[in-house]
Design a protein around this nucleic acid. Structure first.
Length: 122
DNA sequence: GTTGTGACATTAT
DNA sequence: CATAATGCCACAA
């Protein structure tokens, strides 16, 4: 029987990786973020961060992936500051209650502890 | 088959 | 903070 070539196997493997990455991205909870490296590791391919970027670029819009929740190391948005995609990602993150300052997503932090302890109560 | 590039990361300088 | 060097995977020229 016709065995598959190495290239065929490689292509098949690539599809599996892409699918695993899409699944990992889809699993990011609303209001939270993950890094490219983290997604790669979660998908079972540590140190393949670049693959994540490629997978997202190839993802069809119909997939409705929360791609905006994927950021670079240290919470950095991976697009050039001011570019169309940069603004789009920042807008979506802000819409989920995340704070974005200078191309960087700020760590989740209690907004106003005083209010939580004293103010909102009555 | 080699080279350059990319929605990246990590470490060193 | 910026650069450079490596590692990683896929793809185009």
């Amino acid at each position: 029987m016709a065995g598959e070539s190495r290239q065929d196997a490689a292509a098949r493997g690539a599809e599996a990786r892409i699918a695993a990455i899409w699944a990992a991205v889809a699993a990011i909870p609303r209001g939270e973020i993950a890094t490219y490296g983290g997604i790669a590791a979660a998908a079972g391919y540590p140190r393949a961060a670049r693959l994540v970027g490629r997978a997202l670029k190839l993802a069809p819009a119909s997939r409705r992936l929360p791609w905006h929740r994927v950021v670079g190391a240290g919470g950095r948005i991976a697009f050039p500051v001011g570019s169309r995609l940069f603004r789009e990602q920042r807008r979506r993150l802000l819409a989920e209650g995340l704070l974005v300052v200078k191309s960087r997503v700020q760590p989740r932090r209690v907004k106003d502890l005083d209010a939580l302890l004293w103010g909102s109560h009555r």
